[in-house]
Nucleic acid binder design. Sequence first.
DNA 1: CTGAAGTTTCAGTAATTTCTGAAAACTATA
DNA 2: TATAGTTTTCAGAAATTACTGAAACTTCAG
Lengths: 183, 183
Amino acid sequence: MTFTPLLQSFVMHFGEMGSRWGFNRTVGQMYALLVISDEPLSANDIAETLSISRGNVSMGLKELQSWRLVQQHHKPGDRKDYFMALGSVWDMAQRVLEERRKREIDPTLSLLRTILLESPANEQEAYAQSRLNEVHDLLENVTHWSQELQHLSPEKLETLMKLGAGVGKVLDMKDKLLPSKRN
Amino acid sequence: MTFTPLLQSFVMHFGEMGSRWGFNRTVGQMYALLVISDEPLSANDIAETLSISRGNVSMGLKELQSWRLVQQHHKPGDRKDYFMALGSVWDMAQRVLEERRKREIDPTLSLLRTILLESPANEQEAYAQSRLNEVHDLLENVTHWSQELQHLSPEKLETLMKLGAGVGKVLDMKDKLLPSKRN
DNA sequence: CTGAAGTTTCAGTAATTTCTGAAAACTATA
DNA sequence: TATAGTTTTCAGAAATTACTGAAACTTCAG
């Protein structure tokens, strides 16, 4: 692929942001490259384009696969592995959110559960537990919610987003129309 | 404050997770400590409890203040500064989300805007732009949405979360009942 | 104005993370 | 089975990030 300055600027930026998004610079660059490439790239293509070592590319691809953000692709009569970014932008966003939930929230949630099972040894622990209980409930809510949203179609999600704060009104409406259900 | 093993385990865990949440280990520990403490702590209290240097605490508090997660607090007749975690768990969550949006999404959004203003120099750039355009729209949607959600009351937010995927049905309902509005 | 009590800064060091490149391990073909 | 093309691994080097502690700074009371 031709790597013009315009494309380069995006790839480099994404590398910088990468660390904030949970992966390192080169992994960020690799992913950006795959996203904007109109054809699958081999590990060598990537290493050359970004001027990074072959070994680094191999590790980076492994990481991107663990995030399930890239797809492997084979060309007939060619032994090399080719890679491309996963489907739609929505798919990508879902993957990133899901993986981050797994890495950032799940472990904390499980620790909180065990902490909350203990009976408090003193005042201070009792206070801490009450605080942690709130955190636990919040994280659990967020987790459930994000899991359920994943089952919504992209169109519905878009409607929901466009609705924005208007969702408050819809909720009021629901309460009036469906008083049978709890909540 | 008494720093029992139970509390310690949480503080240390939060330190480890800290890096995934956008701040470093000690900042994570400091924040955890403030969250579970029932009284405001001085910088010295923090340094001692966590066995870290006074200078590090000073920098960490500065960072937590930049996230607007801690509040300064003065005791009458005492020149020391005391610190406590910000209000409710919801407030904390909002702050973290907002700050992360600023750090993770905003810069990318602004770069995407400038890239999309350029006219594509070749096939490859045209393809890249179409892809980046999708990313741009998604990020913009997410940004607007999260901003609007911040204006919803905690109770409404909780209702929305508990609703989960059920929100899809409510959206259908809305379309039937309010066919006048677009979307 | 002085000095005691406190906070912040920052140069240097320590710890951690990332990257390289050569070697080992695959894998398909002959 | 040998071998050529390819990918993976991983020890060590390089780069980055975090932490310490002493010095500089600030603030306030006397």
